[in-house]
Computed example of a mutant assay.
Amino acid sequence: MLDLTIIKAITLDLDDTLWPVWPAIERAEAALDEWLGRHAPMTAAMFANPTARHDIREQIVRTRPELKHNLSAIRREAIRLALYRSKENPLLAEDAFEVFFAARHEVTLYDDALLALGFLSARYPVVALTNGNADIQRIGLGKYFRAAISAQQFGVGKPDPRIFHAAAGAVDVPAHNVLHVGDDATLDVLGALNVGMQTAWVNRSDHLWAHDASPHETVTNLTELCDLLKAGEAHI
């Protein structure tokens, strides 16, 4: 059970917590493929082969370990390498990546997301905490967040304790006074529990919990979480 009396801030995952990520990624991939088809057809043909696309990405990850948590840089360098291998202009990588990145931010929020963000941000400082490369300003959600911490900017990702402490520190709140909200059992819940945060697991797809340690609350959507917090307010 949540102890509402000690919550002074909320850290909030983005992908698959506020919106489904894979539809956005698939649209971005399609936009990139269409752009490459017009500007770099040999590279487009290479990327049309899933094995070749995977091999290029794996080469970047293997040869550029410093980019491990920087999804944007990995994507950009994979495009650049594909252009080079296809004997097309590697300088096109920047424009090609921007096509992908713009489409990646055309997310469709879950129906409960906006009202929940309004409710939470009116009561607590909210920090975006993501291993992905979504930009809350670019999506248009910046007004709901006091700060944003991403793995690609910070250099490590969830469940590393350092990124959770960084998110708490961004609003000058000790970790034990933070409620972390996210969909991933390992990255979000176990990672946050490990630093002493309270946790709310957003389980939209009825997954089974498979770990010894448990979240303080499990909800199927963010509306349920807001209702729990609202009900608790009456007893504080």
Rank of each mutant, 00 (worst) to 15 (best):
L120P: 01
R162C: 02
I139Q: 05
S121F: 08
V173A: 05
A170R: 10
A166Y: 06
P125R: 13
T5K: 12
L229C: 10
A40K: 02
L193M: 06
H105R: 14
S86K: 04
A28Y: 12
V189S: 02
P161L: 07
G157D: 05
I163P: 00
L222A: 12
V178Y: 01
I7T: 00
K230H: 15
A9Y: 03
T108I: 08
V21C: 03
V21P: 00
E94D: 15
E88P: 02
G118H: 12
L2F: 03
H165Q: 11
K87S: 14
E58H: 11
P65R: 13
E58M: 13
H211L: 13
A210D: 11
F97K: 01
A151K: 03
K8H: 11
L179I: 09
M197L: 10
V173N: 05
K87Q: 15
E34F: 05
L109I: 00
D172E: 14
A52S: 10
S72V: 13
E34W: 09
L225Y: 03
W19G: 00
L193K: 13
Y124E: 07
D206M: 07
A185G: 03
G132P: 08
A231N: 15
V195W: 02
N133M: 03
T51Y: 07
T17A: 04
G140Q: 10
D112M: 04
V107C: 07
I25E: 02
L190N: 03
P20E: 09
R76L: 15
R38I: 03
P161Q: 06
I10W: 01
E217I: 09
D206C: 09
E88K: 06
E98N: 09
L117W: 11
V189G: 03
T63F: 11
A170T: 07
R64T: 07
A167C: 08
K87T: 10
P50M: 06
V189I: 14
R27S: 10
L222S: 01
E34D: 14
P23I: 08
Q59R: 12
N89G: 01
W35K: 02
H54S: 12
P90V: 09
L36V: 05
A30D: 12
L109H: 00
T220S: 15
P41W: 04
W35N: 03
L4W: 04
I10D: 02
D111H: 13
R76Q: 15
V61I: 13
V126A: 04
Q59A: 10
H176G: 00
T223Y: 04
F101S: 06
A31H: 08
E106D: 12
D227M: 14
W35A: 10
L222C: 15
W209R: 14
L4T: 10
Q153S: 11
G191R: 05
V107P: 01
R123P: 06
G191I: 05
I6C: 10
P159Y: 07
I163V: 08
V195I: 14
N194S: 13
G142T: 05
E94L: 11
Q198S: 05
H216A: 10
P20Q: 06
M46G: 00
E58P: 00
S121H: 13
V202M: 04
V173F: 08
Q59H: 08
R75M: 13
L14P: 00
W19N: 00
P41I: 02
E98M: 10
V107M: 06
A170H: 07
A44K: 01
H180S: 09
P174M: 10
D188F: 03
K68N: 07
